Amino acid sequence: MNLTPREVAVAGDVPYSIHVGPGLLDDGALLARSVRGRDAMLVSDAHVAPLYADRVAAALQAARPDLRIHRHVLPPGEASKTLASFADVTDALADARMRRDATLFALGGGVIGDLAGFAAACWMRGIDCVQLPTTLLAMVDSSVGGKTAVDLPQGKNLVGAFHPPRAVIADTAALRTLPARELRAGLAEVVKYGALGDAAFLDWIDANADALLAMDDAALAEAIARSCAHKAAIVARDPFEHGERALLNLGHTFGHAIETEQGYGGLNHGEAVAVGMVLAARLSEALGLAPAADTRRLRDLLVRLQLPVDVPPGLDPERLLAHMRLDKKATAGGLRFIVWRGAGRAEVVGDVPESAVLSVLREA
């Protein structure tokens, strides 16, 4: 079994590397490589900090004895991804007298990565941020690409900034402490990469589904590295989501609407994306773009990965549609969706009739 750490390069105006492998949170030299000044702050949550914060701080201190390391710990969960929590982080940066050459380490899942990344983007108009994702979902998606944001009651990720990280360090050993539900949520984002642009990767996921669910180290490392490579290539070509990068939102328009309507207290993000991808495939069928057989195959794979594929009961289609009108991909001309013409062939379609969307939601 090859567990040698892998490195995926992200090109573009602000190039950086994604490091994937076991034991990387204890690699002080790697962690310190991105620190330019003498101050660092670890931002984490109350679930993750007790597991890893001391280890990361010790590794950093051993590599850089002169480094001043500060910490800020937030309550866990999507409910913390707010402007109030953003203000708490910036207050902590101010209290620690963090300067322009300081480095913020985002230690946790997607909520911490998005929130801490946004704080780094805004503090003194931008300081370095190193993403230390501890969930599969964050490793393959939110930690890569520099999209940072917080939620509003009206919708997800409505306030944010593009702020590429200085590095992404994904320690696959951290997944051993991940609840099974969170692992499955991350697998939804892995499936997304195959669905949107790589049918062969979708075949690989299908063939390795049992190994992925069993948290086989080699299978997970392969899934993470391939997912990151897909995202890195797209981000390099379209860093500010003016075109192709929107494909990475396959399933997210439906998924974000479900999360918002549930008050971020029902399906988690990956689960909502799984449902959203099935709805996007059904919408593709309704628009005459894709065959029903590909929808069935996608649905069967997600079911095999123990992910939900149906809209939770009790959600009003009209209210879900209202949330979609505020989605970041919507334009003055109407709703835009990421649809597909079959496995591995996603595209952006504008001016989608609301009647078609409502029909898909009602059938679901």
Rank of each mutant, 00 (worst) to 15 (best):
N2Y: 03
R6C: 00
V8N: 03
A9W: 11
A11M: 09
G28Y: 10
A32V: 11
R36S: 14
D39H: 13
D45H: 03
A46V: 04
A46H: 04
V48L: 02
A49F: 11
A63H: 10
L74Y: 07
S80R: 02
K81M: 03
A84L: 10
A94H: 07
A94W: 12
A96W: 08
R97Y: 11
R97E: 15
M98E: 09
R100I: 08
R100T: 13
R100A: 09
D101I: 00
L104V: 14
F105R: 02
G109C: 09
G113Y: 08
D114E: 12
F118G: 05
M124F: 11
R125Q: 09
D128W: 01
Q131C: 08
Q131G: 07
V140C: 11
G145P: 07
K156C: 13
V168S: 05
A170N: 09
A173L: 12
R184N: 10
Y193N: 10
G197M: 01
I205A: 09
I205M: 14
N208W: 05
L212F: 08
A214M: 01
D217W: 02
A221I: 04
R226M: 04
H230E: 10
K231V: 02
A236F: 00
R237F: 03
D238V: 03
D238M: 02
L248V: 08
L250C: 07
T253A: 09
Y264R: 05
H269P: 06
G270I: 12
E271A: 01
M277A: 13
A280C: 10
L283Y: 04
L283Q: 07
E285H: 13
A286F: 01
A293I: 08
A293C: 08
R296C: 03
L298F: 08
R299E: 15
R299M: 06
R304K: 12
P308S: 00
V311G: 02
P313T: 13
G314C: 03
P317N: 08
A330M: 11
G334D: 06
F337Y: 15
I338N: 14
W340G: 03
R341I: 01
A343R: 11
G350Y: 00
S359C: 00
V360I: 02
L361K: 12
E363G: 10
E363R: 11
